[in-house]
Every structure is written in C-alpha cells, then in structure tokens.
C-alpha cells in the first residue's frame, strides 16, 4: 500500500533514501498538494467504500421517506406489540419487526439517521471552527495570548467528556439537536485546539512565513494565505475521525436517557435493551446502523490522513 500511494516528487524522494531524486518539472500541468491528495484518495478503496457509505447515509438522512413508507412514530400497540421481523418483506414496515410500543424498527432505524448525522456533522463543524480559531491564535501569537488560551483549553480538557455532557444536558428540559451539538462542542473543542496550535507553531517557524514577513505582508495575509492552508491538514484528519466519535457520543447520551427527544439510534438501543431476552432484534438493528456509520467516518478519516500525510505510513 505505501508504495502505491506515493505520488508527488517529494514522496519519491522519501522512497529513495539517498535524497532528492527530484524529477525536473514534467511536461504536464501544475500539481498542487491538495490535487495530489485527491489523486491519492481516488485510488484508495477504503476511501471509495467509506464515501459511498456516507453518501448513502446522507441520502437516507435527508430523504427517509424514500426508504421507509412507515412513520417512525406510528404505533399500534395492539397489532404490533413486539411483533417478530418478517425478513421476506424487504423494506416493508414489518421487515425488521416492531418494538414494545408497536413502532416499526426499520422505520426508526431509517429516521434515526438524520439525528445522528446532524449531531455528528454539526458538532464537528462547530468544534473545528471554535477549536481551530483558538488553536490558531494561541499558536501564532504565542506569549501571553498562548498562555491564557492554553490554560483555558487545559481547563476544558480536564472535564470528562461524557460526564460533562450528561451534567449539561441534564439541566435542559428540552433536548433538541442544536442543544446536543452545543453541549458536545462545548466539551469537545479542546482536542482540535491543541492539534491546531501545534500545527501552527510548526508552520509559523517555516521560512516561507518569514519570507512573507520580510516582504511586509500583513498579519491577516500571513495567517490566512500562509499559515492556515499549511496547518489545516491535521485538523481535517481529526475532524473526520471525531465525526464518528460524536455520533457515538450522541447515541451514548440518548441511551442514558439524556440525548435527543425523538427518533435516534441511541434512544432505540436504550429502549431495546429491556426486551433483549425476548426481542434482541429491536436493539440489534439500530446498533448495526450506528456501527456502520461510525466505521464509515473513521475509515474516511484514516484514508484522508494517509492522503494528506503519506510520510506517516
């Protein structure tokens, strides 16, 4: 695998330990580093499989009606109480059976996707923006700004993630998706901030940043043209991998009864455990959906990391 993923001239040099067997510029067009990463990704089956899965999950999340005609909240206790799955009825409301409230397990697994993806995506976005900004300021300016921001980061880092989220969410009576995102972001941004800070510190000492300063470039130009594009790669990797983690966290919170109101895999797993002896399928299918989703994002993160930093392998 490693030799298959090396593309750019620099990577060739890594392969040949003698040093720079740098090719002279070829009679081909410009190749940016982002372009090289993209070329790497396109040839990587892990990336292809995981992004196809994620694409499918996104379609499910936004158009659940396409996959299930039944509503996740429709209950008919009398008719459907713990009714066993009819595996012949593929995609039907009774395909994966009914839960103790007479709701379609299949419909709930489909409709739970949106909540999970929105919490995962929203939290990742918020965490990246907040953590990235804090890390960039701390790393670039250093001195007392760094001292203050880093201590704040440490303080938040010290709060146990799930415990903190539980305490926070417990104080809300109504737990909508934005509230859950807020709670997870509040506790989750520290890792991104630390990664960003380290990355910025490495980049800011590079000669091209010095060169921009020597030309008289403004601070904002240096930050956004030189530092950010070169420091962002590890943050992207952390973001893709942690997206899966946030989805898992949402499920955990829901399982503990502190998560979302409404359809969510965590809620369903929580409900299902009461019937685990008589009807294990109620818990099984949301769990499978959850595992596939988390796995898909972690695989994507892995592939992105290899593409952005081939030296790590």
């Amino acid at each position: 695998m490693p030799e298959l993923t090396t593309t750019s001239a620099e990577k060739t040099a890594t392969a040949a330990p003698d040093g720079q067997s740098l090719p002279d510029p070829k009679p081909e067009k410009a190749r940016s580093l982002w372009g090289d990463a993209w070329r790497d990704l396109r040839g990587n089956w892990i990336f292809i499989v995981s992004s196809l899965l994620i694409l499918l999950l996104l379609v499910i999340a936004f158009f659940p009606g396409l996959f299930s005609s039944a509503s996740p909240d429709a209950k008919d206790l009398a008719a459907h109480y713990l009714k066993k799955p009819e595996y012949g009825h593929v995609f039907g409301a009774d395909w994966l059976g009914y839960d103790a409230q007479g709701r379609s397990v299949y419909a709930r697994a489909i409709y739970g996707t949106r909540a999970s993806l929105m919490v995962g995506g929203g939290t990742t976005l918020a965490v990246t923006v907040l953590g990235g900004l804090m890390g960039m300021l701390a790393g670039y300016f250093g001195g007392w700004i760094d001292a203050v921001l880093s201590r704040i980061t440490d303080m938040f880092f010290g709060i146990p993630f799930l415990l903190g989220a539980m305490v926070m969410l417990n104080s809300f009576t109504e737990r909508s998706i934005p509230i859950v995102i807020l709670a997870l972001t509040f506790l989750g941004w520290t890792q991104t901030a630390r990664v960003m800070r380290g990355s910025v510190i490495t980049v800011k000492s590079q000669d091209y940043v010095q060169a921009a300063k020597a030309l008289g470039a403004s601070t904002s130009r240096i930050l956004f043209r030189h530092v950010l594009p070169n420091a962002i790669a590890p943050v992207i990797v952390v973001a893709t991998i942690s997206l899966g983690v946030y989805i898992g966290a949402e499920a955990t919170l829901s399982y503990l009864g502190l998560g979302l109101d409404g359809a969510s895999w965590g809620n369903d797993i929580s409900d299902g455990q009461n019937q685990i002896r008589v009807a294990a399928y109620i818990m099984l299918y949301p769990s499978i959906m959850l595992s596939i989703t988390v796995l898909a994002f972690i695989m994507l993160g892995e592939a992105v990391r290899n593409a952005l930093d081939p030296k790590q392998r």
Partner: peptide, 21 residues
C-alpha cells in the same frame, strides 16, 4: 524600507509556500 532590503533564504525546500504556485 522593506522594498529596498530583501532576503534570500537558506533552505529552498521550506522557504516557498508549498500550497502556492
């Protein structure tokens, strides 16, 4: 003043921003 005093750096591998043409 910077217009009149410029610099050439030691390491040609780190003195050019790799993400710019």
């Amino acid at each position: 003043v910077r217009r009149n005093i410029q610099m050439v750096f030691q390491d040609p591998y780190t003195s050019l921003n790799p993400r710019m043409t």
